[in-house]
C-alpha cells in the first residue's frame, strides 16, 4: 500500500523547497555583503560566530514553531504561545528562587501547568467549538495576566546553575539550548513519522468531517495537540528565561506568536490545515532569525524593520503559488499553446 505519499516528510519535500530557497538567497546575500558571517571560531572551548548566535537566538522560537506547526496542521492557530512562555518561565523561576524547589521539580510543575492551559484551549476548540483564533486569544490575555500576577509583575532573577544551563550551557562546544531544541524537534518528527499521529493530524486538518467518519477521535486529538503546543511554548519559556538569567512576566514572549506563525507558513504548512512540514517550519524559524540578525548588522533602522519582514513573507508565499511561478517563468518559457498555429 502506498502509504508514503501522504506521510509528512521529514526530508526534502516539495514544500520545503521554497523556504529553503529563500534561506539560500539570504545566506548568499550575507556571503557577498558580510563574509565574516560564515566564520566560526572557538573561544574557551565554545563555538562562536554569527551562525552559532543565530541558532542560539532561534532556540526559543523553535519549540514554539514545532507546536504551532501541528496546531496549524489541524486547521487551528495558537495565539497564546507568547503568554504561555511567560507563565512557564516565571513559574519555574519563582519556584526555584522563592520556594527553593529542585530545578527538575520546578520545571515539571511549570510544564504541567502550561500543558493544562493548552488543554483548556483544546477543550474550547474541540468541545465548545470556539474558533481557535478566539479561544487562544483569550489565553493570550489571560496567560499574560496570570504570569504577571505570580510576581506582581516583577522580574525573577535566576541564579540556579542547573536552570541557567538550559540557556547558557555548552556541550562539546555547542550551546546546550540548540542541541536541546533540535533534539526535541527531531524526536517529534520521528514520532510523527513512525506512528500514525502525523497522518491523523493531516486528516483532521484536511477534512474534519471525513476524518470523523473514519473514526478518528478528532476532539481528543485536538485537545492533545493544543496541550502539546502549550508544552512546546513552556519549554521555550524556560529557555528564554535561562538565556537572560531572569524571567520577565510582562515582556517575555511578547509578539512571539507572530514570528511563530510567520515561520510555520513560510515553511510551507498550509494555514487551511492538512499538509504540514516540520522541516519547513524549522527552516522558517531560522530564516526569520537570520533576517532579523542581518538587518541589525546592516544597521537598518529598527522602526522600519517590519517592512523587509513583510516583503520576505510575501515573496516566499508568492513563490509557493503555482500561478505566480507560472507568471514569473512565462517570459523565459516557450509556450506551445501560445505558438499553436491559428
Amino acid at each position: 500500500m502506498g502509504n508514503s505519499s501522504r506521510k509528512p516528510s521529514l526530508f526534502l519535500h516539495s514544500s520545503v523547497l521554497w523556504p529553503a530557497l529563500g534561506m539560500a538567497l539570504l545566506l548568499l546575500f550575507n556571503l557577498i555583503y558580510d563574509p565574516d558571517f560564515f566564520r566560526i571560531g572557538m573561544r574557551d572551548g565554545r563555538l562562536y560566530g554569527d551562525i552559532v548566535s543565530i541558532l542560539l537566538q532561534a532556540s526559543k522560537l523553535i519549540p514554539v514553531v514545532v507546536g504551532m506547526t501541528l496546531v496549524i496542521a489541524t486547521g487551528g492557530v495558537d495565539l497564546s504561545v507568547g503568554s504561555v512562555m511567560a507563565v512557564a518561565g516565571t513559574l519555574a523561576a519563582m519556584l526555584v528562587a522563592s520556594a527553593s524547589m529542585p530545578v527538575a521539580a520546578a520545571i515539571l510543575i511549570a510544564v504541567l501547568v502550561v500543558m493544562l492551559i493548552g488543554s483548556v484551549s483544546g477543550v474550547l476548540v474541540a468541545y465548545v467549538r470556539v474558533q481557535p483564533i478566539v479561544a487562544t486569544l483569550i489565553f493570550m490575555v489571560l496567560g499574560r495576566g496570570m504570569a504577571m500576577r505570580l510576581t506582581k509583575g516583577m522580574g525573577v532573577p535566576i541564579e540556579n546553575e542547573a536552570f541557567l544551563f538550559l540557556g547558557g550551557g555548552y556541550v562539546l562546544g555547542i550551546p546546550f539550548a540548540v542541541i536541546l531544541v533540535f533534539a526535541f524537534a527531531a524526536a517529534v518528527a520521528v514520532f510523527l513519522h513512525k506512528t500514525a499521529a502525523g497522518l491523523l493530524i493531516s486528516a483532521v486538518g484536511d477534512n474534519a468531517s471525513a476524518s470523523r467518519l473514519c473514526g478518528i477521535r478528532q476532539a481528543r486529538l485536538k485537545i492533545g495537540i493544543y496541550a502539546f503546543s502549550g508544552v512546546c511554548a513552556g519549554i521555550a519559556g524556560l529557555i528564554a528565561a535561562a538565556r537572560v538569567q531572569s524571567a520577565e512576566p510582562a515582556r517575555m514572549g511578547e509578539l512571539l506568536e507572530l514570528d511563530a506563525i510567520f515561520a510555520v507558513v513560510v515553511g510551507g504548512t498550509a494555514l487551511t490545515g492538512g499538509r504540514f512540514s516540520l522541516a519547513g517550519s524549522l527552516i522558517g524559524a531560522i530564516l526569520i532569525q537570520t533576517l532579523v540578525w542581518t538587518m541589525q548588522k546592516l544597521g537598518v533602522p529598527s522602526d522600519v524593520t517590519p517592512v523587509p519582514k513583510a516583503l520576505v513573507i510575501l515573496l516566499v508565499c508568492l513563490l509557493q503559488s503555482p500561478r505566480f511561478r507560472a507568471q514569473l517563468t512565462a517570459p523565459f518559457r516557450r509556450n506551445p499553446v501560445m505558438k499553436a498555429p491559428a
Binding site: S53, E248, W293, Q296
Partner: peptide, 20 residues
C-alpha cells in the same frame, strides 16, 4: 538599534552588533 526597552531584545541586538 532598538532593544525595545527589554532585556531579551537588548541582549539579542547586542549579540548582533558585537558580531560586527
Amino acid at each position: 538599534q532598538s532593544g525595545d526597552f527589554n532585556i531579551e531584545k537588548g541582549k539579542e541586538v547586542m549579540e548582533a552588533l558585537l558580531a560586527k
